[in-house]
Structure formats: structure tokens, C-alpha cells
């Protein structure tokens, strides 16, 4: 059984249906990516998993436990970290305070300090800027902070919403390298990307979303090679 099992998830914003029977699963240790065009329902899927949006129907099981009715804070405590769309760092707080807030659900000071050290090792730039206000960081640095902050809750599953958005190609390389590193250290990853080619190239498996439905699901390599996926999402 997978670490995360999403089954037949329906979600809506008011009367607009955003998800229409989405099913997906993520196994422990995997990198799974959710790709698709703007408005396909990628962010909505993550929001439904982390409890920020209540699903109208369907089930979400994490580590064998039904979580679709739990509040977002309970879900974070269970081990689902979510680096949000648009980064949303606390702009007027220092980098360090941002990371501290990432560990809000945890109590042990020594463990938090150790994890902060690990984040600083992963992202040396954040250590350099630890006392700087997050709003003064560059876009790439803010993305690193958003990811580091999500890691501070010590998640079993880390969900990343468009980490490459608005970054230079070089920085995108760096960020994707770090995602692989984090995964190699044992954190399972669910990655949302518009940059489908790049995402599929580091993922084990992928799902292609189209107006709220999963239209393709396969091994990443198979999706990358698939004629249909190539023409629709990878620009031929």
C-alpha cells in the first residue's frame, strides 16, 4: 500500500468543479509528479490533500489513515509538508524565523536546531542570509526558503507546488538537484510542475491532469516517451 492514496477526489470552488474523480498514489521513497496546464487542478489536488480545501467526495489516505476530514494542522502533524503556490514566505520575518515557524508543530528544541542545520547544509545561501528579512531575498532564495520551511516540519511526504516558477534556467537546475537530494535522504515527494519535461526527468512516476481529471498515469520515462503526452505537454 502506498504512503498516500487519493481515490476519486471531487472538489469544487463554489459551483465550479475543480477536481473530477482524481485518483493517484505515492509510494514511500518515490518522487511523483503531477503535470498539466494552468487550471488543470494541480494546486487544488495538493490543497485537498493538505486539508486546506475540503473535498466534496472521495478519500485521501496517508500512511493508511483517512485524512480527508482532518484539519490542516493535524495533517501537517501527521507528516505532510506543503510548500505552497507562490512560495508565501513571511516577508517581514527573518529567514531564521521563517524556518522556526516551519517547525511550529514540533516541540524538541534540539531536534529543531539539528534540522535547521540540515536545511542550512542543503541551502547554504539561507545560512548566509539567516538574519535577513525574507522579503529581501531573490525569487530563487525565497523558493529555497519555502522548501526549507516545509522541511522543518520533518515531513514524510513533501508536496512542492511549482518550485521552478519564475526562476532562471540555472536556478531551476539547482532546485531540481536539491529535490533529488531531499528524496535521496528518504523524503517522499509529490511535485507539481508546469515544466513537465524537467519534472518528469527527475520523477519515478507521473500523472497528467487535464481539467480536473487524470488523463495519463505511468512511469515518468514512459510518459516522457509517449507520443500523446509529448505533443500535448512537452511541445512536440
Amino acid at each position: 500500500m502506498g504512503l498516500l492514496e487519493v481515490e476519486n477526489l471531487d472538489a469544487q470552488y463554489g459551483r465550479i468543479k475543480a477536481l473530477d474523480g482524481v485518483s493517484l498514489s505515492v509510494d514511500e521513497g518515490e518522487i511523483v509528479t503531477l503535470v498539466g496546464a494552468n487550471g488543470a487542478g494541480k494546486t487544488t489536488t495538493l490543497r485537498a490533500i493538505s486539508g486546506l480545501l475540503k473535498a466534496a467526495r472521495g478519500s485521501v489516505r496517508f500512511a493508511g489513515r483517512e485524512i480527508s476530514r482532518l484539519s490542516p494542522d493535524r495533517i501537517v502533524r501527521l507528516g505532510v509538508g506543503h510548500s505552497p503556490e507562490g512560495r508565501r514566505v513571511f516577508a517581514r520575518m527573518s529567514v531564521r524565523d521563517n524556518l522556526e515557524l516551519g517547525a511550529y508543530t514540533r516541540r524538541s528544541r534540539s531536534e529543531i536546531a539539528a534540522d535547521m542545520e540540515e536545511v542550512f547544509v542543503t541551502f547554504p545561501r539561507l545560512r548566509e542570509r539567516a538574519e535577513q528579512r525574507a522579503g529581501t531575498l531573490s525569487g530563487g532564495e525565497q523558493q529555497m526558503l519555502a522548501m526549507g520551511r516545509a522541511l522543518m516540519s520533518r515531513p514524510k511526504l513533501l508536496m512542492l507546488d511549482e518550485p521552478s516558477l519564475g526562476l532562471s534556467p540555472l536556478l531551476v537546475e539547482t532546485i531540481f538537484g536539491v529535490i533529488r537530494q531531499i528524496n535521496a535522504r528518504g523524503t517522499t515527494i509529490l511535485l507539481i510542475e508546469q515544466n513537465a519535461r524537467q519534472a518528469l526527468s527527475i520523477a519515478d512516476r507521473g500523472y497528467v491532469l487535464e481539467v480536473g481529471r487524470v488523463v495519463f498515469a505511468d512511469k515518468a520515462a514512459v510518459l516522457l516517451a509517449s507520443e500523446a503526452v509529448r505533443t500535448a505537454y512537452l511541445g512536440g
Binding site: 493538505s50 486546506l52 484539519s71 490542516p72 494542522d73 495533517i75 501537517v76 502533524r77 506543503h82 510548500s83 505552497p84 508565501r88 514566505v89 513571511f90 516577508a91 517581514r92 520575518m93 522556526e100 515557524l101 516551519g102 511550529y104 508543530t105 520551511r149 516545509a150 516540519s153
Partner: peptide, 23 residues
Amino acid sequence: SRLGRAWMAIREDELAARHMGIN
């Protein structure tokens, strides 16, 4: 306190605060 930090986070960005696991 912890509660004080939660307030500060909510004041800054309520949605981000929920992402941090703040009730």
C-alpha cells in the same frame, strides 16, 4: 510564546500560517 508566534504568522499571512500547521 508559541501562541505569540502563531499570531505573528497569522498577521503576516494567514494561509501560509495554515501551511505551517498552525490551527
